[in-house]
Amino acid sequence: MIRRKKYNFRKGDIIDVEEFHDGRYGAPGEKRQKRVKPTQEQIRIVNAQNKAKRCRQKMLAYFKMGDILATWTYEVENRPPTMQDALKDFQKAMRYVRREFKKRGYEVFWIRNIEKGTKGAWHIHLVINEIGDTVSITQKAWTKGGTWSIEIKHSKYYDEDFTKLANYMTKDEHTTEKKIDGTRGKPRIAEANYNTSRNMPLPEPKVDKLHRWKAEPKPKKGYYIARIHEGINPVTGYKYRRYTMIRLIPEKVRRGVKRE
């Protein structure tokens, strides 16, 4: 059985779609597969993919390309002894950020990953909404070291469906980079802690049953497909596909003319 999940974000301006074979049944034309207990490594891979997926969807729903990707770094003498201490540092900084956002009449949305490198250095990656002076606020909030900031659209991790940035923000001690020769490098993170603000719920998807697996999806009228990703689920062994459709902007809106 083939299922399709459709998530509507930003009042329908963005539609995120997942298509997959139900793991309880064989693919079309095949017998029902025997249930096989997945390995710990397979479970870890699926969990990592799901974490990145939820991160990407929260970015699609709550962030835009003009928002900020910031990094808080630690001076050597201020490095935290444990992850718990790093969490306290983050929470203290965010209390200042929330207070300043509230003064300006804004709600703060954030996604962060605290990382300890294999050589002992610590830093915090932070995706946060731009309200006009977000960079200044994040700089003043952080007293343990330096602050580096850039608009998401200008970072090397930006793409239309936020895949690159989500993968970057959810990396951990198991994440490795692919070398030029195709082999995997050693992990560069010894410990990581990922989280998001609680004010970013995701809508429930609309679930449909499909009769067959289409060779290539077509965009809904008035939309274009930003990216298509296909792969094999390591637990079920079946194909899956995801793609993001973005509403086409009418020409009169692009030119700054208000809609009637």
Rank of each mutant, 00 (worst) to 15 (best):
I180W: 13
I114P: 02
S149W: 00
E160N: 09
K179E: 01
I152R: 08
V127G: 03
D181I: 06
K156N: 13
H123V: 01
V127H: 02
T134H: 10
K144F: 04
K153N: 12
T176E: 04
I137R: 11
E160I: 07
K156W: 07
A141N: 06
T118I: 09
I150L: 12
N167H: 11
Y168W: 09
I152Q: 12
K144Q: 08
Q139N: 13
L126P: 05
D181P: 05
Y168H: 12
T134W: 14
L165P: 11
L126F: 08
Y158W: 15
I150W: 05
T170R: 00
E151N: 14
A166W: 06
T176I: 06
H125K: 01
S155H: 01
K171W: 10
I150F: 07
L126C: 09
T176Y: 04
H154T: 12
G117D: 07
W148S: 13
Y168N: 10
S149M: 09
K178G: 07
Y157L: 12
T183H: 01
N129K: 03
K140N: 14
I137M: 13
E151A: 15
G145D: 00
G145S: 02
R184C: 04
W142R: 10
Y157W: 14
S149K: 09
T147I: 08
T170V: 06
